[in-house]
């Protein structure tokens, strides 16, 4: 039998097409909306960086001050006490979730 593009087939394709477009378009639109906002905020950040009189962390006078008066030098004992930390192994919870059948 020769395949023919019947009225029924046309309507079916059209409906499926519209359904696909309307289902997909929402997340796609969202994605692009988010990215453009991110882009303009990123541009704003680099613009402000250019306007700053000082652009390197080691030139910051208050940083020089705090090392002179308080922290001595980077990675000093005092700096380790206040500014550094340790991390905790939290994998047990994830293992439990995976065992209960959740795909993460």
């Amino acid at each position: 039998m020769k395949s023919q593009f019947t009225r029924k087939k046309f309507i079916r394709t059209l409906t499926l097409g519209i359904a696909a477009v309307s289902f997909v378009s929402i997340p796609v639109q969202k994605l692009f909306a988010g990215l453009t906002n991110t882009k303009s905020r990123t541009d704003g950040v680099y613009e402000q960086d250019k306007k700053m009189p000082l652009r390197k962390s080691q030139d910051n006078p208050m940083i020089k001050q705090i090392y002179k008066d308080f922290l001595e030098h980077p990675n000093s004992h005092k700096a380790h006490e206040l500014l550094h930390t340790d991390y905790v192994d939290r994998s047990a919870g994830v293992k439990r979730l995976r065992q209960s059948g959740i795909r993460i």
Binding site: R41, T42, V45, Y46, Q48, D49, K50, M52, L54, R55, K56, S57, Q58, D59, N60, P61, M62, I66
Partner: peptide, 27 residues
């Protein structure tokens, strides 16, 4: 406010991806 208030361009770019890297390389 002073004491813990001044910053440089290297700090403001922390807010974007690649910013921490760029600031660290400048240092």
């Amino acid at each position: 406010d002073p004491l813990l208030g001044q910053s440089t361009g290297a700090a403001t770019i922390f807010g974007v991806t690649g910013g921490v890297m760029e600031a660290a390389l400048r240092f």
